[in-house]
Each structure stands twice: as C-alpha cells, then as structure tokens.
Design a protein around this nucleic acid. Sequence first.
DNA 1: TAGATTGTTAATCGATTAACAATC
DNA 2: TAGATTGTTAATCGATTAACAATC
Lengths: 232, 232
Amino acid sequence: MRRKLLLLFGARSCTEELYLYFMEDKNISLQTLRRLPVYLHYLKLIRKDTPSVSATAIAEKFGLNNVQVRKDLAAVSGSGRPKTGYFTDELIVQIENCLGCASQTKAVLIGAGNLGKALISYNGFADYGINVISAFDNSADVFGRNINGKPVLSMDELEAVCLREDIKLGIITVPLSQAQSVCDTLVRLGIKAIWNFAPTILRVPDGVLVENENLASSLAVLSKHLHKNLDS
Amino acid sequence: MRRKLLLLFGARSCTEELYLYFMEDKNISLQTLRRLPVYLHYLKLIRKDTPSVSATAIAEKFGLNNVQVRKDLAAVSGSGRPKTGYFTDELIVQIENCLGCASQTKAVLIGAGNLGKALISYNGFADYGINVISAFDNSADVFGRNINGKPVLSMDELEAVCLREDIKLGIITVPLSQAQSVCDTLVRLGIKAIWNFAPTILRVPDGVLVENENLASSLAVLSKHLHKNLDS
DNA sequence: TAGATTGTTAATCGATTAACAATC
DNA sequence: TAGATTGTTAATCGATTAACAATC
C-alpha cells in the first residue's frame, strides 16, 4: 500500500499525498496494533543473528496464522520481498515508527497503591516513548515520598502539573469507587488517553481513548476455564 | 434458555439434563465473560439501595448497548422479568456462581520483580476464588523473603510445591527471555491456566489456557491514539 | 389496558483464514 | 526456471447491533 502511494507521488499535490499517508497509517486495526509490540520485542531479540526474517517464521514462532502476520507487517512495512522476507533492522525501525516509540509522551499516574507503585517502578514504559513524570495520591503512607526517583504528589497538585506539563496520558490505579471521578477530572484537564486498571468501564467523551487493563476480567476467563475442566 | 431446560426436566434423564446444563454454561462467549466481573462489582455496589435492576440501567451506566447487556445476563441468569428487570441479590449470586467465585483455586506466581511483588500484595484475587500460595524467584534480593505473608521460594522448589498442592493456575511475571521456558515448565507440572504478563505470545498445548495481560500491547494502542491526534 | 422490559431472530460489522495471483 | 515468499481478493467466523415478538 505504502509503496503504491509513493509511486503515485508527483501525480498529486504534496498535501493530498501526506493526507492519504496519514489516513492509511491510522487504519491499522486494533488487533494488529496489539500484536506489533510482540513482533517488535522478538525482532530485537533476533536482530544480531538474523538479518532477514519471513512472516512465515514469525507466525511459526508465536503459533499464529501466517497470513495474519503478513497482513500485520504489510500495515507498517510494505517492504517485504518474495523469497527473502523482511530485513530485520528495517522492520524494527518501521514498527517503532508506527508505534511512535521515538517520541516522548509525558504521563501521570493516579493512585499509588500496590499496583500503582509497581507500575511507576516499571522501566519498560520508555521503550514506547512514555515517561511517567509523577504519581498522585492523598494517602499519608505514600504522599511526599519518592518512588523510582519519581515524586508522589498530593491530588491538589494534579491540575497544576497537568496544565504546566501539557499531559495527554493518564494512568488510573485507584480503587473502583474513585475511578470514574478521577477519570472525569483527567478529561477536564485535557487528557486524551487513559490507561485504566480499575475493574470498571469508564465513560469518556469522544476523542478520549480508554484502554482497560481489567485484571478482574482476565481472572474471570482463567477461573472459568479451570472450572469448565472440573465440571466435564 | 436455562428456564426452558428446567421446564424440560423430567422428560429427560437427570444425567443428560446435567450434561446439557453444563454444556450450555460453557458456551458463554469470551467477551461476555470479560464483562461479567464489571457488572458484578457494580451490582455489589448498588445492592443495598437497589433491590432490582434492569439491563437498560446497567447498559446506561457503562455506555454499553442494552441488548448486549441483556444477552450477557441471559447467559448466566434467565431470571429477568419484563417491567421489573432482575433482582440484584439474585443476579449477584448467579454471576458469582458462573465465575466460580465460591471455590478455592490455588495459584503460584513466577518472578518476584516489581510487578510480581505488586500482584502478590494485591488482595483482590480472593474475590474470584483464587489464592496465590507462594512466589518463586531465584534472585538474591527476594528469595527467602515474605511478601504479604506469602513466601518467595527458590525455583528449585517449584516442582515439589506444584505437585504437592495440585496447582492448576500459574502467573508469569518473569522477563521476556525466560517466559516461554517458565511456561513450558508449568505445563509439564500439570498447570491448566496461565496468566502471562510477559510481552510475548506463549505457545501451549491444547487444553491449557493462556490469558495475556500484555502491557506493551495496551501501551501501543494508547501511544498510537496520541500520535494520531498530533498528526491530523 | 398500556408500557416497560425481557428474550429471540436477523442484519451488520470487524477480524481471521483460505485460495490464489504476483514476484524475486 | 522452480520454488519460496509476498500481497490481495473472497469466504468464514464471532461478536455486536437492530428489529420484533413475548410478558408481566
């Protein structure tokens, strides 16, 4: 697809060309987007020994359908070659570009309980260009402390920090009862993407994306599977 | 559905009836299963003030389609009444039964890094009948310590514990590089369900369920959404 | 009775997979 | 050239939504 657009280049105005370019890039399916980081990690692991890799080999590695992998890669690359496959280094760069790993996105985390503390201590965010600048929590246990070099501030300071730093991403790790009201506050402060760990579905206006990391939902699936086997 | 089966009761043998009962119970769609805990939490919250609740009201609360909620509830309840809706307490019990909240499932956790520590400190598992009995890690930092009253044991002891306690659920919070080999070990020790936090897709034989809590995938979705908005 | 609500059947939508043509 | 591999078009599958009949 990308290749075709580049061939067309020159026949259209530059603006129109760029528009089409971005439009198409946006149409990556949600499921594809979720698989791309898996491929990316794997490719980084094998890059030293394996200069080129085929979709078939990746599919084999993860037990996926090879057409699925090829479609996923086609969405970001378009530089695969029959017989050869894809150049590993090239593919890594293309996936990273698609995911926006190079950019720096500042984020805040609300709720410094066990899970919140673990997340702020986790250093894997940087790989995706995400930088959690501070946590917010009113509880006396954590308020004022430093975790992983990041300050835990009072909720009173949330507004000032969000506006000053132009924060676009919020991570919610508060208990269920506070989740929706924290969410509403974040939206009011201009946040455009929310990573929600509370076991609920948050209501947000159009243009704000919520990604639910609902541990309860996963537990339900696992628990059900175990009981299914017991029943039969 | 359930109601129909109960009406048929007596016309069939008891064994056949029970078989059908469990078969149908198993066919709850994956997505429905993921939403049930969300409803359950909400119902518990409102049970005091709200003796009965309609699917429409629940749908409204979470911004879902009301037919979807009704289908979800039909899968576990079948006791809804036109005009009234569902009795809150009854619905809670029915969802809990479906999810197997009452039973006790023992689990082990492999990898007591930041995330592993947070999960073992999290007390919400009990709500789903899951009891993490111990963590396993060879790192000198954590090995031999107690976290939230649960011992962190050496990996050498994993086999003995799994077999002795008849463990069916394993939680993987090790780094990517060790994830598949830990998974293989757990499968060999008879584990039937795996909750995987490593950013990869694990390969398992038929009959073993893997639930991926891939933080990298979620970050990819969030990161992409933020960049989409910047581009346009 | 009238109206709110349930539950079911059919239509739509998105994602996966199968079949096949194109290419190095 | 022959064969491996890509990329595309069509078929399938599961989940969501719309339309409607049933019920208290």
